[in-house]
């Protein structure tokens, strides 16, 4: 049985369609990355999965429970790690966890707190108020809070947004550990590297719907080929190369100071300048080609 089934999901805010006919199935034991630019509808989808947003249309089934009607039962079996830090900052680390263990009706609160303190590697900081913790520790605590009832499904909403690279890597290790243990994870992100590193499968979301879905390798093979060529130079040169390459039927995207020619291995000899830098095609190429947005 799939852990999550979304069919024809829609949600409007006034005239804006935040989610516009989204279909998504997440099987048990899979870590699915919901990759999309800001405003693609990822957070609204997450809110609909926790019953905090009511869809205008479509069907939601989470762990066999129909939402929004049966949302409370579904929430009892899933953990949520929000995008924004909403810990109680004056309260101790262990009390933050204990409160959520009680909210989830965990029978042995003390054991649940011990277990999650170990996961977050915060056992020695258990008596400290949250505002005494570093940013990385707070993020680990936030993740631990979502695991306090040992959920079957974990929703991660932009879990590392705004964090520095070191803390991000630290958190990725934790999430990767959960994935390896078989926890079903739905993770929204707009970081390519995050999706590439953690997700078994990636669903690219744009304008409120899933526009592509496969493993990162399959997405790259299907949408970006084998090799990407990056050409550097002054703007007039880049414009000329771009025009010639596009006339030959290849796709080009901006890549910072360069242009990236996708599926460069299929180009006719002589089409791509000799000074181009060739590299393996990436998920970033796929993301930009599909959504038209610059990657982060």
């Amino acid at each position: 049985m799939p852990a999550i089934e979304l069919h024809g999901l829609t949600k409007h805010f006034g005239p804006i369609a935040a989610v516009d006919g989204l279909d998504l199935v997440v099987d048990e034991g899979v870590c699915l990355g919901l990759l999309g630019p800001n405003g693609a509808g990822k957070s609204t989808t997450m809110k609909m999965l926790t019953g905090q947003a009511i869809p205008d249309g479509g069907e939601i089934r989470v762990l066999g429970h129909e939402l929004p009607g049966d949302s409370k039962a579904a929430r009892a079996r899933m953990g949520v790690v929000p995008q924004l830090d909403n810990l109680d900052i004056d309260v101790t680390v262990e009390e933050n966890l204990a409160v959520f263990a009680r909210l989830y009706r965990v029978e042995d609160v003390a054991a649940a707190v011990e277990r999650t303190l170990e996961i977050a590697r915060l056992t020695d900081r258990r008596k400290d108020a949250v505002d005494k913790l570093s940013g990385g520790m707070r993020r680990r605590l936030l993740l631990a809070r979502g695991l306090v009832h040992d959920p079957e499904l974990l929703l991660l909403d932009e879990p590392t947004v705004g964090l520095d690279p070191q803390i991000r890597t630290e958190l990725w290790r934790l999430i990767d550990g959960l994935r390896s243990q078989g926890t079903t994870i739905l993770m929204s992100t707009h970081y390519i590297e995050e999706a590439e590193r953690l997700a078994d499968e990636v669903a690219v979301v744009a304008a409120g719907k899933v526009i592509a879905r496969a493993t990162p390798a399959e997405l790259i093979a299907e949408h970006a080929g084998v090799t990407t060529a990056e050409v550097y130079g002054p703007p007039d040169r880049l414009a000329r190369v771009r025009r010639e390459v596009e006339e030959a039927g290849l796709r080009v995207r901006p890549a910072g100071p360069a242009i990236a020619i996708v599926a460069a291995d299929t180009a006719d000899p002589g089409l791509i300048p000799d000074d181009a830098v060739f590299r393996a095609a990436s998920l970033e190429d796929v993301f930009v080609m599909l959504t038209g947005e610059e990657a982060e």
């Binding site: 409370k72 929430r75 909403n86 109680d88 959520f100 909210l103 809070r145």
Partner: peptide, 14 residues
């Protein structure tokens, strides 16, 4: 400001 209710309502609390 604290978004406390977002966290509580993500748990099985209505």
């Amino acid at each position: 400001f604290q978004r406390t209710y977002d966290a509580i309502l993500a748990a099985p609390v209505d």
